[in-house]
Design a protein around this nucleic acid. Structure first.
Length: 627
RNA sequence: GGCGGAGUAGCUCAGUUGGUUAGAGCAGCGGAAUCAUAAUCCGCGUGCCCGGGGUUCGAAUCCCUGCUCCGCUACCA
């Protein structure tokens, strides 16, 4: 038996209906970089990603396209696979929840839990919103409607199956407290503990097939399928052979890391652990929630329209440099800003100037003065020994940072080392020395090149393609440990290679216009006419009970009295507004806000926190048209 | 309003369990050098570490409180 350490890392399985975006890409790159670091260290590594393919939305999308759900999934999953290929992702397996073995194992687990009494059936009545795929309590409904979709939910009374999650509450709290690394970073852990201060309910894990067909059938009741999360979370164990290949499972479980985005903390830190506890699976070592990438401060997510495909970035800048930037720039666990300017600045400074240029100058010197043959190193002095000593501890330091999940610091460590090689060059000035002392110069160039090689080696997990091309150009001794000193073989040819990271010529900055111009969509005169603005006089005003911002106004429009709800209580008291001549939109569709009907909308000017009403200059009867 | 995050050098941010003169990168200024991708190297920072209290021999770091900004959400038709 070998005694290689095992390393198992997962990404969430992505909902197959989503288009891959930077959020997916980031988690996946992160997992890939970690995997590659461990592979380079010769750990027995397993990296799992995949897609979550069941659920109502998939069913609906497939119906809309007039194809079978499975076919729909098969089509959609390609987007992810293509993306990961472009990003140079080296997952060991791509799990899909529609794989047969996954479904079988999920069913097996459900059956076991059912037999153990961890799952029970219960009558459940509730308001179900199809859009949300969930039940609402009466309290949560607004005016009898789903707060998300503003649609009336159906009241459904039906039998369902529940997982006894609640009974594990105390155990879970205790477990989290006793295992500080279980949920990372720290503030996420506190968040979960905060969540667990409230009573933990049992989890409804079934959906009747009458509503949802596209799912895994409950083994003990074929009229139901299982709730998507229950199905999806189990991928982490089925993906490495749980219930199928126990030897493999035992080798990799418990997982070292479940990487997740901060939006799915509860499912992973509450549902999943209690499920594992009930099944009898040991807990994973660490669940790590990272932050979001912000695009000029706006959140990049599927719910907003500012999706920037990672592929766009790659086509412009190359995969490796994008991977480098993402790993280098994010403090894990916190949100981070992406701007093209940040990117080019870092790229030019670190990749082009520090790293790429060093590679170029060193090899050029060897080429010119040593006929492209790596010189033999001779005696070393202080400058050399300093550099060599740093080099010898470098990989340990880097790996320590990796273990601590400080990837940006690990990267910084490597780049600092690269900088110190540049410094060494300046101190020793081989281009000058070569004229008088070719032997010593040879030593200097050997040391600089070998140091570069070591630094490059450590960057390999982050920028696999570029680094491989660099390492290929150097003659290396394969028998030596690649993180040790002296792998570069003297006396052998070194290939010249093109500039690794060509400088990016920065686009000249547009004049620093802080005020970004709001985009103006031109509309026609006719469209303006569709909005019926009139004057109105405020007859009465009162605060709507149990609200902070809402005033109920009664206004005279000349023809009638109307009731308008306005969110201006922060700025106007009822007394202040009384008797004012204001401007309202008269032909706006009425709406109920907090149960109070609003038959129009008043106009006000707002900037920042300041809000002032549009009022009439002078006297004019209510109902006058405004235009 | 609720929940969450953040306020440290011109900009982007580090600051581990409280401990010596608070750091890095970028930008800026001055210089050296010319092997190299107009790259590199050296030198240059009196920063109320958001304010106010407190704990302590000692706080950017812990506690309380206030302010500001951002995200999500809710009651801003």
């Amino acid at each position: 038996m070998n005694n290689r350490k095992s390393f198992y890392v997962t990404t969430p399985i992505y909902y197959v209906n989503d288009k891959p975006h930077i959020g997916h890409a980031y988690t996946t790159i992160l997992a890939d970089v970690l995997s590659r670091f461990h592979r380079d260290k010769n750990d027995d590594t397993f990296f799992l990603t995949g897609t979550d393919e069941h659920g109502q939305k998939v069913q609906e999308s497939a119906e809309a396209r007039g194809i079978a759900p499975q076919e729909h999934c098969d089509n959609m999953v390609k987007h992810f696979k293509e993306n990961w290929e472009k990003l140079n992702i080296t997952n060991d397996f791509f799990i899909r929840t529609t794989f047969d073995f996954h479904k079988k194992t999920v069913q097996k687990i459900l059956q076991q839990l059912w037999e153990k009494g961890e799952i029970y059936e219960s009558e459940y009545g509730g308001y179900y919103c199809v859009g949300c795929e969930r039940y609402y309590t009466e309290k949560e409904l607004e005016d009898g409607k789903c707060p998300q979709h503003q649609k009336e939910p159906e009241y459904i009374k039906e039998k369902n199956y529940f997982f006894k999650m609640g009974k594990y509450q105390d155990w879970l709290i205790n477990y989290i407290q006793l295992n500080p690394n279980f949920i990372q970073p720290e503030h996420r852990k506190n968040e979960v503990l905060g969540f667990l201060k409230n009573p933990l309910n049992d989890l409804c894990i079934s959906r009747p097939k009458s509503r949802l067909k596209w799912g895994i059938e409950l083994p003990f009741d074929n009229k139901y399928v299982t709730y998507v999360w229950f199905d999806a979370l189990l991928n982490y164990v089925t993906g490495i052979g749980y219930g199928q290949d126990q030897e493999k499972f035992n080798k990799f479980w418990p997982a070292n890391y479940h990487l997740i985005g901060k939006d799915i903390v509860t499912t992973h830190c509450v549902y999943w652990p209690t499920m594992m506890k009930a099944i009898g699976i040991p807990m994973p070592k660490t669940i790590y929630a990272h932050g979001w990438w912000l695009m000029d401060k706006a959140k990049m997510s599927k719910s907003l329209n500012n999706i920037v495909s990672p592929l766009d970035l790659i086509d412009t800048y190359g995969v490796d440099s994008v991977r480098y930037y993402l790993i280098r720039d994010m403090m894990l666990g916190q949100d981070s800003n992406f701007t093209e300017d940040n990117f080019t600045t870092r790229y030019n400074a670190e990749l082009a100037n520090d790293f790429g240029n060093l590679a170029n100058r060193v090899t050029t010197l060897i080429k010119k003065n040593y006929d492209s043959v790596v010189p033999f190193p001779q005696e070393t002095g202080d400058a050399e020994n300093d550099l060599i000593n740093t080099a010898k501890t470098l990989s340990d330091n880097v790996y320590k940072k990796i273990e601590d999940f400080k990837l940006n610091q690990a990267t910084d460590e490597i780049i600092s080392f690269i900088r110190s090689i540049n410094k060494y060059m300046e101190i020793t000035q081989p281009w000058k020395l070569v004229k008088t002392d070719k032997e010593s110069t040879g030593t200097i160039l050997y040391i600089a090149t070998e140091a570069l090689r070591l630094g490059a080696q450590l960057l390999h997990p982050i920028m696999p393609t570029k680094i491989e091309s660099l390492l290929k150009a150097l003659p290396l001794d394969d028998k030596k440990n690649k993180f040790s000193w002296g792998v570069l073989k003297p006396g052998e040819k070194i290939d010249a290679f093109d500039s690794l990271f060509p400088r990016i010529i920065k686009k000249k900055k547009p004049a620093p216009q802080k005020q970004k111009k709001p985009e103006i969509n031109l509309i026609t005169f006719e469209e303006v006419g569709r909005v019926n603005l009139i004057t109105a006089k405020v007859l009465a005003a009162e605060q709507i009970p149990e609200t902070n911002k809402l005033l109920k106004l009664s206004v005279d429009t000349g023809l009638e009295k109307r009731q308008i709800v306005a969110g201006i209580a922060d700025h106007y008291s009822p007394e202040e507004i009384l008797g004012k001549n204001i401007v309202i939109v008269a032909n706006l569709q009425p709406a109920k806000i907090r149960g109070v009907e609003s038959q129009g909308m008043l106009l006000a000017a707002k900037k920042g926190k300041k809000l002032r009403l549009i009022t009439i200059d002078g006297d004019i009867a209510p109902g006058a048209s405004v235009g």
